[in-house]
Simulated scan of single mutants.
Amino acid sequence: MKKRIIAVLVLALAIVIADRFILALTEKPSVGHFRSAEGRSTYVTAYQDALAAFPPEQSTRVPTSFGDAYLHTWNTAATGIPILLVPGRASGAPMWNELLPHLGTNRPVFAVDAIGDAGLSTQSTPLTSMQDQAAWLAEAISHLGLDEVHVVGHSFGGATAAALAMYHPDLVASLTLLEPVFVLRNLPASAFFWATVASTPLPQSWVDRALAEIGGTTVEEIRERTPVSVMIDAASKAYSAALPTPKVLTDSELERLSMPVYIGIADHKSLAGGAKAAERAQSHLPESTVKVWPNTTHSLPFQVTEKLGNELQEFWRASESSAEQLRR
């Protein structure tokens, strides 16, 4: 299963690269939308099938200035500081299925579908900047009545999580960035090349090879089908996203992240910047926890689920303990 989720997220990442490199040259929709009722129906069926692997205890739609955000909740009776999971591009809340069982049970866990992207959230107002991206997420958190959250973002979701921490630090108890794209370094040129191949009407064998190159995986894994891969494939065909393009954080912006920060980087075909990204993070965030995970790719959170879950639980405990000591 873990190998198959890798191929799924490679497809999602190819979508975001193609959006930045190709669709930037064309007119984008002002708000994200499904291209047809039939496409939406196909997507929603796939979404529900994927979510069934680890069904939430509660699902909630909350209003924001940019549309309605749809969130799922687990551990609703827990009393610790909540965890908020922000998905990668075209992935939605079900992408977290494999990691969810390893996040502990003493904190509520929220997973959101991004406004402007495929999912069950709906967009009403254009998102023109990463500050807007942070604003709708902050409004959703506040509408839920949460004072602060441990926010976790993967891939494009890492850029959104970093924007939330930068513009609304009072809401962020800690920040976890897992293979975040467009945060510490730009994507490598090879990723843009292979994303171009993947999004061009070429023979499927070429597209499969391109996706494998992007994700550091095999063509065989790319071709496997799972409920989540079916969902992401449906999203890529049925949904026109309308999202701002993230920019790599400047040194001063990084240094503004005063909350506890955990950064996980892959050691093989990292799209977050690899060892150089880790070095930059450690240089400008000396109090942060930065780890280059061995034998991982961009799909890091789903290759080391148990070990990562245990590390994050310890990171959150330490963060809360430090905050408590400062309040005394």
Rank of each mutant, 00 (worst) to 15 (best):
K2P: 03
I5D: 00
L13C: 05
F21H: 08
T26W: 14
K28H: 13
K28E: 11
K28A: 15
H33P: 05
H33I: 05
R35S: 12
R35L: 12
E38T: 15
Y43K: 09
T45V: 12
Y47H: 13
Y47N: 09
A50W: 04
L51F: 06
A52S: 09
A53Q: 12
P55M: 12
Q58R: 15
T60A: 06
V62W: 10
P63G: 09
S65M: 14
F66T: 02
D68P: 03
A69L: 14
W74D: 13
W74S: 10
A78E: 11
T79Q: 13
G80V: 04
R89W: 13
S91D: 06
S91V: 03
M95C: 14
N97F: 02
L99T: 01
P108N: 03
V112Y: 07
S121L: 08
S121I: 00
H143M: 02
L144M: 15
V152E: 00
A163Q: 07
M166P: 02
Y167M: 06
D170A: 10
S174A: 11
L178Y: 03
E179G: 07
F182Y: 09
P188T: 06
T196F: 12
V197T: 05
P201M: 12
Q204R: 14
S205N: 12
V207T: 15
V207N: 01
T217K: 05
V219P: 05
E220L: 08
I222R: 09
E224L: 08
R225L: 09
R225Y: 01
P227G: 10
V230R: 12
K237M: 12
A242E: 10
K247M: 11
L249I: 10
D251W: 06
E255P: 08
P260M: 06
D267G: 01
L271G: 08
G273F: 12
G273T: 11
A277Y: 07
A278R: 00
Q282A: 14
S283T: 13
H284K: 09
E287C: 06
T289W: 04
V292I: 14
N295A: 15
T296R: 09
T296G: 07
T296N: 08
T296C: 04
T296W: 06
L300V: 04
Q303L: 06
V304T: 07
T305P: 06
T305R: 11
T305H: 06
A318C: 07
A318M: 07
S319M: 03
Q325T: 14
R327Q: 15
R327K: 14
R327H: 14
